[in-house]
Design a protein around this nucleic acid. Structure first.
Length: 680
DNA sequence: AGCACGCCGACT
DNA sequence: GTCGGCGTGCTC
């Protein structure tokens, strides 16, 4: 009979930006479970770490490189992330080249970073679950259309086949994608299964949530989004982990929620940029969801009206199943899209005479109008007409936006605020002028132009207080002839049944941008916004105002629709070996001292990569970032590309190897972004 | 990330 | 003569 070992070496993930695990000794007859937290000595302090691996200590460890410190205490009796989730987190740490400990701890509720045993929390939190009390009114209420029925049938059939493939559900706005999700989810509850639904980061999660609550009645749901307090988050997380919550609905970080009986993942708006985390651990929730589903061998459905080029390509190459919903139940016609050349006209309130006339007739019919302008504030510039001075941010390389209601200059990049100067700081001219327009000015101008109409503005400034957005939405629902002014916030998730005219302003910047993803995003935004027009039984009309009316891609989009537009963009991507035809990683560096310092640092990295992987890695840069200075830091970037993911991966590993010393690092902050989508 | 160690400027 | 500035390096 073998004797039970009495000493273990534990490999621990520590909450530090370190790319290795640390080893500690642990003396006991049995090792702690993998995925449990332990209290460990780390430097001069003690810290909470997570057990990743345990091995029996060899009898003699004299030749070990360190004398291992002993673990101070065990904190949990059951694993926090289960084996599957740990594997996913590990995979993500490697894929995104981010320190394991940070990956793991960013996936757990913050409350678990403190060395408190879980058991005391469990007692406080469980048993207080309040299920939504709404009755299941929709369950047998809405009949699926033939198209929806067929779509549902296809998905159900695919999900019975092995091997499973992710499903791209491409459904135009209003075609009833949510209805499909609901029907896919419903049969899973009988077997005690759980479902994870990931939605974009918007203040509108409640709308989908309400829909789910209506449909599923008292089925326990857990909701995880950025507005939750630590306690609420912890509670939702525990309910998911215990299997009690059957539907887990949340924004991108919810992809890391433990769910022992997970049977389906739904990604809503799979093209949405907010699914990618843009700082620290820069993961893409959709891509991790695909990985998670693959590891668990469960189905994943991704819905969108405007598929990302990546997903469309995956559908084209049969990595994904692909199904379309082309009809809007209850609507006869698609919205009529037209391009308005702004150049021949003198604009009033930023609108062409044609647009103003369209607003007038729409209001006269008792219907609603939406004017979309993706720029908040009153005016994007304040300048002096006599000497040319412009108000610019002291910390960033941008002009400050003037906000009329607050009478302040605000930097939309670092948040700095400044009182409006009474006279030009350069030439003392008291007559300062604004240039360009934001939603605040648009609201005022439209109110002046249509004094009898109700004008409602929805943007970050007008909805920052709690309940304000809901109140504004209620106004929109209860007033018939009405003008709605707003930003990006209006593009997603809302139903405005009486909205029949949408006017989109100021898309020129996106048409002319150097960012190769700008056109894709513009196309998605235009289709999403246009989708707001003409719900129910009324035909919609969409006017795009631009000074670039001959832009070929705009014609492609308006004339042929999103899919041909996207395929055209894919052709360009193919020619340049850009994603999805090649793989990229973006190295960002910033310096408080100078742009030169940041560029020099990246140049070193670039040289390092020539020597090692020159043949397989293309380098673009280093160049100053689009936003050259932000919050007092000069920003530069180096884009790495390769047709072989493995080559890119190897290059990053090499670069991040702790033995690689990069001199001149002082004052430099730098980071790696795998599969970057934001180049600002 | 923290935290300590380590050399250079203005103070009780 | 010291207090403290943050540059540099380490954490099993």
């Amino acid at each position: 009979m073998t004797q039970a070992p009495s000493r273990y070496i534990l490999h621990i993930a520590v909450p530090r930006p370190l790319r290795t695990l640390f080893s500690y000794s642990y003396a006991n007859v049995s090792a702690p479970l993998l995925g449990t937290r332990v209290l460990i000595p780390l430097g001069k302090q003690s810290a909470v770490g997570l057990v990743i691996r345990a091995e029996i200590a060899p009898p003699e460890t004299a030749d070990s490189p360190f004398t291992l410190k002993p673990v101070e205490a065990l904190l949990d009796t059951t694993p926090l992330p289960d084996a599957h989730l740990l594997e996913l987190l590990h995979w993500a740490a490697r894929y995104y080249h981010h320190p394991v400990g940070e990956v793991i701890f960013s996936a757990l509720p913050v409350a678990l970073r403190k060395p408190k045993p879980l058991s005391s929390r469990l007692q406080k939190l469980l048993g207080r679950y309040e299920a939504p009390t709404l009755a299941p009114i929709e369950r047998n209420h809405l009949q699926l259309t033939d198209e929806q029925q067929q779509c549902l049938h296809s998905i159900e059939q695919w999900n019975l086949q092995a091997p499973l493939r992710p499903i791209l559900l491409h459904g135009i706005t209003g075609s009833g994608k949510t209805e499909i999700y609901l029907r896919l989810i419903a049969p899973l509850f009988a077997a005690g299964k759980q479902v994870l639904v990931i939605v974009p980061e918007i203040g509108l999660t409640p709308q989908l949530l309400l829909r789910f609550a209506h449909f599923f009645g008292d089925t326990p749901m857990a909701c995880l989004h950025s507005a939750l307090s630590d306690g609420e988050r912890m509670k939702a997380w525990l309910q998911a982990r215990s299997g009690e919550a059957r539907i887990i609905i949340g924004t991108r970080s919810a992809i890391f929620t433990p769910a022992p009986n997970l049977a389906l993942i739904v990604i809503d708006e799979e093209h949405d940029a907010s699914l990618k985390q843009q700082e620290g651990f820069r993961y893409h929730a959709r891509d991790l969801a695909i990985k998670r589903a693959q590891m668990l061998n469960i189905p994943i459905v991704m819905g969108t009206a405007t598929p990302s080029l990546e997903s469309l390509y995956n559908a084209d190459t049969a990595r994904f199943h692909y199904v379309r919903l082309n009809q809007r139940p209850g609507t006869t016609r698609k919205p009529d899209l037209q391009i308005q050349d702004t150049r021949p006209f003198e604009l009033q309130a930023g609108l062409t005479p044609h647009s103003l006339q369209a607003i007038r007739t729409t209001l006269a019919r008792g219907e609603q109008v939406m004017v979309f302008l993706n720029r908040r504030g009153f005016a994007p510039a304040l300048y002096c007409p006599s000497c040319g001075w412009q108000a610019s941010c002291q910390h960033c390389s941008v002009k400050m936006t003037w906000h009329a209601r607050r009478n302040k200059l605000v930097c939309h990049h670092c948040g700095a605020e400044q009182a409006t100067p009474l006279r030009c700081p350069q030439c003392q001219n008291p007559q300062l002028t604004t240039q360009g327009q934001g939603t605040e000015r648009l609201e005022l101008a439209l109110q002046t132009h249509f004094p009898a109409a109700v004008v409602v503005r929805i943007d970050r400034d007008s909805t920052s207080r709690k309940g304000e957005l809901e109140a504004k939405l209620a106004t929109v629902r209860s007033n018939d002839p009405l003008i709605l002014v707003g930003t990006q916030m209006l593009a997603k998730g809302h139903d405005f049944p009486n909205l029949t005219l949408v006017i989109i302003l100021d898309i020129d910047q996106s048409l002319l941008s150097t960012d190769y993803r700008a056109l894709e995003r513009l196309g998605q935004l235009l289709i999403q916004v246009a989708g707001r027009a003409g719900r129910a039984d009324k035909a919609g009309r969409v006017i795009l105002q631009t000074s670039q009316p001959d832009h070929p891609m705009l014609h492609q989009l308006v004339g042929h629709g999103y899919t041909p537009f996207a395929r055209q963009l894919l052709e360009d991507r193919k020619r340049w070996h850009f994603p999805p035809f090649g793989y990229q990683a973006l190295i960002r560096a910033s310096s408080t001292a100078s742009m030169e310092k940041a560029l020099q640092f990246l140049e070193q990295i670039s040289q390092l990569l020539i020597v090692t992987d020159g043949a397989d890695i293309q380098r673009l840069g280093p160049i100053p970032a689009l936003l050259e200075k932000r919050a007092n830091r000069y920003r530069a970037q180096l884009l790495l590309g390769s047709q072989h993911r493995a080559a890119l991966h190897a290059a990053l590993l090499q670069l991040l190897n702790p033995s690689v010393k990069l001199p001149g690092r002082s004052g430099i902050r730098w980071s790696v972004d795998v599969d970057p989508i934001d180049f600002s």
